[in-house]
Simulated scan of single mutants.
Amino acid sequence: MEVVGYISLFFVGLVLGTLGGGGSILSVPILVYLFSIDAVMASAYSLFIVGTTSLVGTFLKLNVQMVNLRVGITFGLPSLITIFSTRKWLIPAIPEVILQTESIIITKRFLIIGLFAVLMILASLTLIRKRKESQSEQEYSGPYLMGVGALTGVLTGLVGAGGGFLIIPALVYFAKMGFKTAVGTTLLIITVNSLFGFMGDVINYQINWYFLFSVTVLAIVGIVVGTHLAVNVSNQTLRCFFGWLVLGIGTLILAKELLV
């Protein structure tokens, strides 16, 4: 299973390079189910893998002018603060058993993975639903976008995800971006959010650096390949594919957690 896991992490980078998100929705299940890593630690490792890989992807997208720095800063700074705070203080404060009765047990693991799946399903619907691509990339409200960024940071911190599956729909819907520019801008935001969120985990947990670096290298190779593949694919095609991918994986994870 671990061999399959290593191969799968190459595809994490491939999906990030092609779609600008989805790295965390793949890496967290891979780490939990194929490497048998605890859900909380898997979410921490996911932040490093996705953040480092997205950093490489950001430079690649900058070279083709597919990153909106203004929106990235407006959205990213509030989310940076909230994701670090969530990882540093909120996650450690959640008890291992949140609720226990004779018939129901709600654990910390179920909360994290379950919330993860529900957010994926909701976010996917905004991308699958057909809408006309905006011709302007400046039609957004700064304060409103900052608020959305802060909320996204909290949710990203809770599930240990880079947040692409939340950030891309937010940028497409609120910032009126074309999908490809939203992808590049999202990679920038993911880089900052993920790596700063991981800093909170370094303080709280013992990290297996050898394992983490080895799987991250595979993901970086994947994002380089994925970035080149995405050049000749249309906005609408990428957006719909990403939406259905998120919906499918979110549904599978939720079903597995509810049936276990």
Rank of each mutant, 00 (worst) to 15 (best):
V159Q: 13
A93W: 14
P95M: 11
Q65H: 12
I106P: 01
L218F: 14
W244Y: 14
M41E: 13
A182G: 11
I7P: 00
F11L: 05
A175P: 07
M66R: 15
L80Y: 08
R70G: 02
S8E: 00
N193I: 10
S194V: 08
I81Q: 09
M146H: 07
V217K: 03
P29A: 07
A175F: 14
I249K: 09
K132Q: 13
F84Y: 15
I168E: 04
G157P: 06
V225F: 10
L14G: 00
V221F: 15
V202N: 12
G178F: 04
L252A: 13
N63R: 14
L218N: 03
K132E: 13
E257R: 01
F11G: 00
V32N: 00
E257T: 06
G57S: 05
Q65S: 13
N235L: 11
V148P: 02
K130T: 12
P169Q: 11
F174E: 14
N63Q: 14
V159N: 07
A44M: 01
F211C: 04
S46P: 06
T191E: 08
V3Y: 15
I190G: 04
T101W: 07
N193G: 15
L166T: 06
W89A: 08
V192A: 13
L90R: 10
E2N: 11
V246F: 07
G163R: 10
L31G: 02
I94T: 06
V148Q: 08
W209H: 15
I168G: 01
A170R: 01
V202P: 02
K108Y: 07
T101L: 05
G147I: 14
R129N: 10
G149D: 02
G178W: 05
G153L: 06
I105F: 03
V64G: 02
G226C: 01
I37S: 01
F59K: 11
G22A: 07
S54H: 01
G243S: 01
I121L: 04
L34A: 05
Q138V: 08
A219H: 03
T216H: 10
M1Y: 02
F84H: 11
D38I: 09
T185H: 05
S103Y: 13
E139S: 13
V12S: 00
I73N: 03
S124R: 11
G178K: 14
I128T: 05
Y173M: 15
L151H: 06
G248D: 07
P95L: 11
L34M: 14
L90V: 14
L166W: 08
I112W: 02
G153A: 05
I128K: 13
Y205F: 13
G149W: 06
L19W: 02
S103P: 00
L188K: 03
T74P: 01
N68H: 14
E2M: 10
K176D: 04
T82P: 01
K130P: 03
G248R: 04
D38G: 04
Q236I: 12
Y173E: 15
V233D: 00
G51K: 05
L158G: 06
F165A: 04
P143R: 12
K180M: 13
L14K: 04
L119S: 00
S124D: 03
Y6H: 06
L247E: 02
S141H: 10
